[in-house]
Simulated assay, not measured.
Amino acid sequence: MPILVTGGAGYIGSHTVLSLLEKGYDVVVLDNHSNSSYESLRRIESLTGRNVIYYEGDVSDRLLLKRIFKDNKVKQIIHFAGLKSVSESVVLPLKYYENNVMASIVLIEEMIANNIFELIFSSSATVYGNPADIPLKEISKVGGTTNPYGTSKLMVEHILNDVAKSCPQMDITILRYFNPAGAHSSGLIGEDPNGIPCNLVPYISQVAVGKLPKLSVYGHDYPTHDGTGVRDYIHVMDLAEGHVAALQHKASRSNCRTYNLGTGKGYSVLDLIAAFERQSNTNIPYEFVERRAGDVAECWANPDLARQELKWSATRGLDEMMRDAWNWQQKNPDGYKI
C-alpha cells in the first residue's frame, strides 16, 4: 500500500519522496504547485527508476482526497502541504490559517472517515516562539510565536494532540524542523522558490549565480557572536531520512509523539556566507538592513530524542549543505524551468 505525501513536489517533500522510493516504498503525491514544480517528480523518477502516482490538487478538496484514498488504499500519510514564508505570513495571516490550519483539519477528518490513522506532520521550530533556553528540547515551552506561520503550525500541533486523545487508533508523529538547506547530491532536485527567496541559502545561491545583486542580511545587532541571527541548519537529505526513520518507528509510549529534527549546532548568517564562499569559490556581496518582523535572535535544537527513539541523526555538515546547494544552483540557474 502506497504512502500519500501531500506537498510531495515541494522542496522537503520531493527529497523525502526520493528517500521513500529508494527504500522501496510506493508513493502517491498530492500537490497544488503553489510553490513547486512537477519537474521535480520527473527527475525523482529518473533518479530512482521508479514511478510516482501523482494527483494535482489541494488538500482541502474532500472529493479528491476520497478518490485518492479509495483508488490507492492509502494507510499512511506524510503531510507537508502548506505555506511556509515567515515574512509573507505577517502580511497575509488569513491566507496562512486557511492553507495550513483549515486544510489540515479537512485532511484529518477525511483520514478518520476513511479509516486511515497513521500521520507524520511537518511542523517547525517556530512553534517555540522566542526561545527562553537554548538548545531547544521537545519539552521546551511552546507558544508566544512571533509570526502567523509559526502560529499556524502550533495550532495544527494542538489539534493533532487533541485528536490523538479522542481517537486511540491514531498514530501521529510531529516533526519540528529547524532550517533545511542544501540539495540532493546529483544536483537534479533542490530548492526552487518563487520570486526573491525567503530562505537564506537559496538567496545566497542566487546572488552567487548572478540572479540577484546582493544579499540582504536582516539585522546585525542581535545578541549573538557576530550580531546576525543564528539557526540550526540541517541538510535536506538528512531531514528526508528523518521522515523515513519516523515512518519505520513503531512506538509504544504515546499515539502522538514529537521530535526535533536538527543538528544541535547553531550557525549565524555570516557563518553561512563564509561557508558558501569556501565551497563555491565566489564572493557574496551583502548589506545589513533592518531586522525582519517575526525573526528571533537564535534557534537551535537538542536532537537527542530523535537519536534515541528514531535511531536517526544528521550526518551531513555545513560545508556539504553549501556544496550541494551550489551544485544545484549552478546546474539549474532558473530552477525547474525548462
Rank of each mutant, 00 (worst) to 15 (best):
D319K: 03
G57F: 08
P303Q: 07
A246E: 14
G210V: 07
S252E: 14
N179E: 11
M155Y: 11
E290R: 09
L63I: 04
G8A: 06
M111A: 02
E45R: 06
V127G: 06
T146A: 05
G13R: 06
H220D: 15
A103H: 10
K265V: 14
D192Q: 01
A9P: 11
Y96S: 04
F117T: 13
G229F: 00
N72G: 04
Y267P: 01
N130V: 03
G8L: 06
W300V: 00
G7R: 07
S280E: 10
S40K: 09
C256E: 05
L41M: 12
Q206K: 14
L83T: 06
E39F: 05
W300T: 00
G242C: 06
G57Q: 07
T282M: 13
K141C: 01
I68M: 03
I44N: 07
E56T: 12
A240E: 04
L83M: 10
K137D: 04
R257K: 09
Q169H: 10
S152E: 03
L310P: 11
Q169E: 15
V209W: 01
D58P: 02
T282P: 00
M102Q: 13
Y267E: 13
V91G: 00
L30P: 12
L30I: 13
Y97Q: 10
R67V: 04
V236E: 04
D133S: 10
N115R: 14
E298G: 11
I174A: 06
A125Q: 05
C256L: 03
A183D: 02
N32D: 15
V156R: 05
I53K: 10
R291G: 14
Y97W: 14
Y259D: 13
K141L: 12
S205N: 08
E241F: 09
D71R: 08
P213G: 05
N72R: 01
P131L: 09
K137H: 08
R291W: 04
N179G: 10
R43I: 01
V90H: 08
S36L: 08
D334G: 08
L188G: 02
L64T: 10
R42A: 05
I273A: 10
S36F: 09
M170F: 12
I204N: 00
